[in-house]
Design a protein around this nucleic acid. Structure first.
Ligand SMILES: [Mn+2]
Ligand SMILES: [Mn+2]
Ligand SMILES: [Mn+2]
Ligand SMILES: [Mn+2]
Lengths: 219, 219
DNA sequence: GTTGTAAATTAGGTAAAACTAATTATGTAT
DNA sequence: ATACATAATTAGTTTTACCTAATTTACAAC
């Protein structure tokens, strides 16, 4: 049962939203895909018809088992291609998302496996996100947000939750990348902003919006 | 002016047909794309509107300069991806065409150049077809059909004109590949079939349909 | 020059995936 | 309980890229 480009994007989005929110509402999907709610309900009915999701207004959208397998397959391909673009073609990590967004939809039975082998079976993509294995299993890794750190706690950057170009550009400018050592010097009560050091350089102040999107491996 | 997947396929097809036939008729395009003539005329008008081709029933379709640049860009990407699939992912040469058919439509300013560099700036794809440079220039190479050879003439296989899976499988079975040395032992007048040796092995008889699709470098 | 066939063209229609503009349902605040 | 705001849904429309079924044009054979 082959899926269209658009169906694949919906499944992927529902999967991602399901990880953070307890209910995947029609509105949330519409926002994530920047589509009109009227378009979204059409597609949700189509996916329901194909038994890739269940949907009703109170429960929201939930992937069925085949739906989740399909979503993980797209995510796997997306992240493998990102590794390829960065490791082999020398792209910067902030340039690859929109290309992987296209490459993830290439259909071929053997492609993901061959690409995976060629890349040396990487476990994480250039943003630190885990690459699902072909059986859908995810490696576990960085999981604590910088925003949840206490004063004086240290950790190593393992992943970023926002992969938009502006955010990644901002991190580059801060000299912050995967593997950077972070220490929290201070935490301001009134807006949750933090003063941190990155690899022991001069202290910098960062907003809660920033610290919420950095995941670390605790020391 | 970005192009759709479908527009790109039409431009590519018109380019290829223009190399072999003097007039690219609507019918020829319809056959090549396995589309209905009524669909083809719609698209030809759209491409004409965008000034990527000229078209009228007597002249047929002709690429304008921007149209040819676009076509060569798709062909370049197609052939570079085929090299990648064969050289890096270990696909066989008969498996890659339909994947390249998808990959050629990935849009990114830097991608073709980065891929080209990564592959070591190859001049020919796995089927021996020349890869246009970014300026549209084609390397020249194998150009004589086996069907045009005389008795006792020899040559080296440099390219195949038909890249369909059945044809390539047939060649594999004959033990014929790029670089194979061919000698013509006999040519049958009544159906133009030939008796040849491949790398000096036992003589084999091949049809004119086959010899028409093999291009050689003459010794 | 009539006739037959193939090629080109017209007219109208469909499916996918989006949209806008109402309308209805739901939940929260007063 | 009422009112307001937000979410969900309906109805109808658009664009792209196809289609089928006529119809018209071109051209070759006789
Ligand atoms: Mn990404
Ligand atoms: Mn996508
Ligand atoms: Mn090919
Ligand atoms: Mn194509």
């Amino acid at each position: 049962m082959k899926k269209t480009y658009s169906e694949e994007n919906y499944l992927k989005t529902i999967y991602h939203l399901g990880k953070s929110e307890s209910k995947v509402s029609l509105k949330a999907i519409a926002d994530a895909l920047e589509n009109n709610p009227a378009s979204v309900i059409d597609m949700l009915r189509k996916l329901k018809e194909k038994e890739l999701i269940t949907y009703d207004k109170t429960q929201g959208a939930i992937l069925t088992s085949p739906g989740e397998i399909a979503a993980l397959d797209i995510i796997r391909k997306h992240r493998l291609w990102e590794v390829f673009l960065v490791e082999k073609l020398n792209y910067d990590w902030d340039e690859v998302h929109h290309i992987a967004e296209q490459l993830e939809h290439i259909h071929d039975e053997q492609l993901a496996k061959k690409l995976d082998d060629f890349l040396g079976n990487p476990e994480f993509d250039p943003h630190g996100d885990p690459i699902p294995a072909s059986n859908g299993k995810m490696p576990v890794y960085a999981n604590k947000r910088l925003s949840e750190f206490e004063i004086n706690q240290t950790g190593t950057v393992g992943s970023v939750r926002d992969t938009s170009t502006p955010f990644l550009k901002y991190l580059k400018q801060l000299n912050l990348g995967l593997g950077s050592k972070i220490k929290v010097l201070d935490k301001l009560d009134f807006d949750q902003s933090m003063v941190i050091t990155i690899d022991d350089s001069e202290p910098k102040t960062v907003s809660s919006k920033m610290t919420d999107n950095i995941l670390l491996i605790t020391a």
